[in-house]
Each structure stands twice: as C-alpha cells, then as structure tokens.
C-alpha cells in the first residue's frame, strides 16, 4: 500500500479496500474508520466549516466533536472517525446538498 503514515507492518495482513474521497481513489484497510484511512493517505482536511469556511479535520477521534463529518455513500454529515468504509465507498467533503434534491422534486 502506498500510504505514507502507516506506523508498522503488523496490519499488513488486513484486507485492503478502495474508496473515493472527493472523487479521488484511495486505499484503506477493511474495517478501519474512514478518518484513519484518510489520515494514512496524508489527508488531514476532511471538510470546510459551513460557517467560517476554514478547513477542519479529525479532532476528538471518537465521535464526540462531529468535526470529521463527511457525506458517505449519499448520507450527509457522517462521522468518519466512527464509520468504516465499504469497498468502493464514495466520500465527499461537503454534502451534495438537500437543496438540489428538493428542486429536482418539484
């Protein structure tokens, strides 16, 4: 695996999966949270703050702070620190937007 921040080889026996972050193909280990796969790929910015526009990433790492939210397989604002990726999962920094959906409906 090309991941640069993996710490040791003990996990090498784990199964590798592919997923997409903002349309970019990445590798991760099956069963690990998306935030861990992203960090292993050197990705620290998971989203931008809807209020300040600043970059945000992992903060508490165990589901309390909601900073590592992303859209995962069509569900917006999923906590990536708690959620393992499925093979082929599509993860986006920002929700594709309920507004667009609403307008399609009309």
């Amino acid at each position: 695996m090309s991941n640069t921040l993996r710490l040791n080889s003990s996990s090498n026996k784990l199964e590798t999966i592919e997923f997409y972050f903002n349309d970019k193909k990445l590798n991760g280990y099956k069963g690990e949270p998306i935030a861990a796969s992203l960090l292993a790929n050197g990705i620290k910015t998971i989203r931008t703050c809807e209020i300040t526009g600043e970059n945000r990433g992992i903060f508490c790492g165990i589901g309390h702070c909601y900073e590592c939210r992303a859209e995962v397989d069509g569900i917006p604002n999923v906590r990536t620190c708690l959620t393992p990726a499925r093979q082929g999962a599509k993860v986006f920094s920002q929700a594709s937007g309920i507004k667009g959906d609403m307008e399609d409906e009309s």
Binding site: F59, C60, H64, C65, Y66, R69, N77
Partner: peptide, 8 residues
C-alpha cells in the same frame, strides 16, 4: 447550538 451540542 451545533452538532456536538456543547460537548466540546
């Protein structure tokens, strides 16, 4: 008032 409801 946000997502974490003041937990932080």
């Amino acid at each position: 008032m946000g997502y974490c409801q003041g937990r932080v």
